[in-house]
Nucleic acid binder design. Structure first.
Length: 232
DNA sequence: AACCAGGACGTGA
DNA sequence: TCACGTCATGGT
């Protein structure tokens, strides 16, 4: 078993299934998470909600995003067409808690235009990357959690964790890290559905773990994954 | 009070 | 290509 998959197993054993992506109206859990239930998103509305959250969560905490989504939900506007019908000024106020509301409002409205041209088709990664405001992480977030595609989502925590143990270079680029992890996981997982679930859980687990040990410097203090290194 | 959060883009060298 | 500034709110 390779080191990456060992890390995944340790984190899963420690924290359990994370049930990402959290949804406002999940009906499964109070907080919107749905551990051990991979039947989400259930419809076009929920797919859009994940896309929306993926854009809103750029460089912010998800608790802030939840406020924005709740604001929209209470205005009965957690919907791509309803957002379009909203005065942009009001839309910006509703998503204000997530920060960068001017940029994000434009990004989202532009994404909605694209979203409507899809008509239930799964977007290509390249198509998403061509949209303003959607970089590699947001694209993979949308593909992995909104469309259940086998695209691993790399974030700042992933970079910190993997570079901390020398698995990747400290200033490795996004695609390098993504490729490395996907290759390692694919060595262990062949079934495509399982692969998607592992990608989803792994990213969520990395976030859960890193919030504890890789948020403030010095990074990695108390990180029990060091035990894996000792067994190499 | 500084720093970071489930980043992306524009600019100048 | 890459380092750096900008976008903005909210929590520690």
């Amino acid at each position: 078993m390779n080191t990456t998959f060992k890390i995944y197993n340790h984190l899963y054993k420690k924290y359990g299934p994370q049930g990402w992506w959290p949804l406002i109206d999940c009906s499964s859990q109070e907080n919107g998470y749905h551990p051990n239930d991979y039947s989400f998103p259930k419809n076009t509305q929920q797919i859009f909600e994940v896309c929306l959250g993926s854009i809103l969560t750029q460089n912010t905490t998800f608790t802030s995003v939840t406020k924005s989504l709740q604001n929209l939900y209470h205005e009965n506007a957690l919907d791509s067409q309803k957002i379009r019908d909203l005065p942009i000024k009001k839309f910006k106020i509703l998503i204000k808690p997530s920060g960068y509301f001017n940029q994000k409002a434009e990004y989202i409205l532009n994404f909605i235009d694209f979203f409507h041209t899809l008509k239930n088709r799964i977007p290509l990664r390249s198509e998403l990357l061509d949209l303003r405001g959607i970089g590699p992480e947001t694209a993979d977030s949308i593909l992995l959690f909104a469309y259940n595609q086998a695209e691993f989502k790399v974030d700042a925590y992933t970079n910190r964790l993997f570079s901390h143990y020398g698995l990747i270079d400290k200033n490795a680029k996004y695609d390098e890290i993504k490729n490395f992890i996907e290759t390692q996981i694919k060595e262990e997982i062949q079934d495509k559905q399982t692969l998607v679930h592992v990608y989803q859980e792994f990213h969520a687990l990395i976030v859960a773990h890193s919030k504890k040990f890789y948020s403030k410097k010095p990074y990695g203090v108390g990180c029990f994954l060091v035990d894996i290194q000792n067994h190499l």
